[in-house]
Design a protein around this nucleic acid. Structure first.
Lengths: 185, 185
DNA sequence: CCAATAAGGCATTGAATGATTACTTGCTCG
DNA sequence: CGAGCAAGTAATCATTCAATGCCTTATTGG
């Protein structure tokens, strides 16, 4: 038996493990057993901790959305930050690129968006996107500016999720290179 | 038994059915049996027609990518089309919005992107994205312009996939409204 | 030190799934 | 017309999976 631990702490470890596994297989393509093995607990314990596989996925997905929101909020709250300067805009962009270095986060996001046909997942997705939108509005940017920023982020998501940046394969290289204006890969 | 039909024709019907079902459940979340029922053939026939569930999904996904590519190519080839005018740019945007009215196409796209961690799916995704990129380059736009166009498209994908446009729910209404500048919803 | 609560595992199960094999039947062309 | 090929199915199988019920054992407060 895995050494005893406070349930809340174990829960976090399970969320970590689930994030990793869901990133690979998505909601339907990941078994609770795979999560359990990754978390080094038994499969029934995973189910019991979250009630249902769907609730587990939602917890993972929502946590991913919040980590984006939080990262932006933290940058914006910094007194040094100036949203209206060129440097400030680049800083937020780089913050996002930095977040996406965590490929598990990226893939969980993509799977969550794709699985939004499931009503409960769609609800979480809309709420998460809304919070991110509102957070970015806190810069003082106008709505079009916020939209363009998010749009670039979504393109980045898609290109990264299809591994377009590794070994600049084929003609995507040009699209890819113009997507990372100044941030190093 | 379903009435006889040329295999190629039946194959198209199966692809239609598979598109519909994969749109709902994604790759892992859709059974070959569900596709078979939708196509009104037996489950083994579906498997035999495509060899493998993965190959079926890839056929569906690739076909979706091509329909986008083709729609753009057709507009661009029109002698009336002027890529450099404001109207021309709007026209391409509206072409994409019109395509996405087919929610099955939209969701298959999203699931394909998300599932790009599967090597063979990733390969198809990169190839499809590259062709779309090259097609759009045929407008004569510079790479940044093409990138921005695609980025807006990706944002549209995500918002549509999470049903952000139905009953302008919550604070997403503002983001949503600034995403469809002139095209009617 | 001990009892109660919380942490966690084991065994099980019924349903679903992708794939294979072998069989049947309709159509077409010589 | 009839033989052979192509279209399609029925039956089946080995796995996998999410979930449930019941049991065991740490830990901790009194």
């Amino acid at each position: 038996m895995a050494s005893r631990m406070a349930a809340a702490e174990r829960r976090e470890l399970m969320l970590d493990a689930a994030t990793k596994m869901f990133a690979l297989g998505g909601y339907a393509g990941t078994s609770t057993d795979a999560v359990a093995r990754e978390a080094e607990v038994s499969q029934p314990y995973v189910v019991r901790m979250f009630g249902t596989k769907l609730e587990l996925f939602i917890a993972v997905f929502e946590r991913a959305c919040r980590s984006i929101e939080d990262a932006f909020a933290q940058v914006i709250a910094d007194s040094e930050f100036d949203a209206m300067s060129e440097a400030g805009q680049d800083q937020l962009g780089e913050t996002y690129v930095e977040l996406l270095r965590d490929s598990d986060l990226l893939h969980v996001l993509m799977h969550g968006f794709a699985a939004a046909t499931v009503p409960e997942i769609g609800q979480v997705a809309r709420a998460g996107m809304e919070r991110i939108f509102e957070t970015l509005r806190g810069t003082g940017w106008d709505d079009e500016q916020v939209r363009d920023f998010i749009a670039q982020g979504m393109l980045l998501n898609v290109l990264l999720s299809m591994n377009a940046f590794e070994e600049h394969s084929g003609g995507l290289a040009d699209l890819v290179s113009v997507c990372l204006p100044e941030s190093v890969v």
